[in-house]
Design a protein around this nucleic acid. Structure first.
Lengths: 251, 251
DNA sequence: CCGGGATTGCCCATTTCTGGGCATAGCGGC
DNA sequence: GCCGCTATGCCCAGAAATGGGCAATCCCGG
């Protein structure tokens, strides 16, 4: 089988993983082939059906992993915070380009270094309303980051996160209660903060009709209140965050 | 200057753009070199409050651009909605893997095809609380998507979005109102569909106090209603989706 | 020590939402 | 043609949310 290049090959292997162990093996191989020593993939599904809504696959030193989990450092991890501020992969050495580093942050990074984790490269991905995750590749404290492989790592990381998403939850869309166009409009304007009366004016129909559309929409999702109706519509992709925020101009 | 490969070269050109015109030129060249006919980069930044909080760079046919802008189709564009559901780039032909397509959606895609836009590949990127954007590459209606270039397009699109982010929002985005812990709890339970009274019981405080917390939280975000308060908190990451979604799912 | 914020509690009046029921009209499929 | 779905309109009663004011306690930082 001829591969376009290393990236293609690694991406293919990773996307073919349908068990966590296979993802581990594929990532382990990928990290090695790209010139990294360590890798760590963390994926949190917020809104998935099922129990385990998160995944952690890594070959970090036990010492560090124990500390990280034991002290629940994910909440303060500067790398993770930076990942929420970046649209692309980034080197850890540049983390202060994204967030301010507190003394505690530097201390945390130092402990990581002492535990055998040097510099690294993290690929973050976010799905507002559904999931967030990151895939990191790192080298030992005195190792050298393979700069020429960062683009490959970006792709490999993204593919790994997509694979994790597949593994952890129904990656493909689940067809559920769909709203009619009119119902969707009413929900959208409601999410934009309009009352039923205002929405009625905007849509040019009676307020009572708007109330009715929202009522039926709530019944579709089996939720009792407007808040959850809007959230459900967001989860389903029936409306989007940008639909709402474009209307909200904070002053 | 020796480039590792085409991706490196195109990414370098794009990231070097420091004006919108340069970004246009670089993207135009990149699309061409990768075998695409069209490109469109849309970037929206939140929280700035200002006017120039979005960017649109494209070489789509005027006919389509006029329709899109004139009818404000961005609110319903299925490709954009799918972008909010994907962690990686996706082909338009697979858009129904991400979101349900309504009749109106299919009609919109048909009109786009009639306007000279065939299949395409969209790279979405999201920064919860800060920005969202997409970079699409497309071919003419009877053109062929260069499948072997999708990984390159993924990188190029990501780099272009990062460049757009640099251009549009020179760093400092305004940190909006942070909620206090108690306010956050009230918002969270509210998002879970609880009334103020129920939340009061859960938190072990008076209903009136819950009402007060929610009231102050609304004032922090300058929103008049609960729906938008919850959306603001969600987009800011003040509350998480898992906290909300897992609550009503069991029902 | 004092000011400011956070948290808690209560009152009021008004608006909005929610869940029922009822009815007409159009559209598309069987 | 009949049935189901959608969209439209209206009424009502009760529950909930909203905006306003008032006041106590606690803690933190200047």
């Amino acid at each position: 089988m001829k591969h376009f290049n290393l990236t293609e090959e690694l991406a293919h292997d990773i996307s073919g993983a349908d068990k966590e162990e296979q993802l581990f093996a594929a990532l382990s191989n990928a990290a090695d082939r790209m010139g990294f020593d360590l890798f760590a993939l963390a994926f949190d599904r917020r809104g998935g059906g099922g129990e385990g809504a998160s995944m952690l696959v890594h070959n970090y030193p036990d010492a560090w992993a124990n500390v990280y989990v034991g002290f629940d450092l994910s909440g303060t991890d500067p790398i993770r915070r930076a990942g929420e501020k970046s649209m692309t992969g980034f080197q850890w050495r540049n983390v202060d380009h994204y967030i301010p580093l507190s003394r505690g942050d530097r201390q945390l990074l130092k402990v990581a270094r002492d535990s055998g984790i040097g510099d690294g490269f993290t690929v973050p991905r976010h799905l507002p309303g559904e999931a967030t995750g990151s895939c990191s590749f790192a080298v030992a404290p005195n190792g050298r980051i393979p700069l020429e492989m960062l683009h490959a790592a970006e792709i490999v990381g993204a593919v790994a996160l997509a694979a994790a998403r597949q593994l952890i939850g129904t990656g493909s869309y689940i067809r559920r209660a769909a709203l009619t166009e009119r119902q969707r409009e009413c929900v959208l304007w409601s999410a934009r903060g309009k009352t039923a009366g205002e929405t009625a004016g905007i849509l040019g129909i009676s307020e009572e009709t708007v109330v009715r559309h929202l009522k039926i929409a709530r019944e579709r999702y089996s939720v009792p209140c407007r808040q959850m109706l809007i959230l459900c519509a967001l989860f389903d992709g029936v409306i989007g965050f940008s639909d709402v925020y474009d209307w909200w101009r904070p002053l």
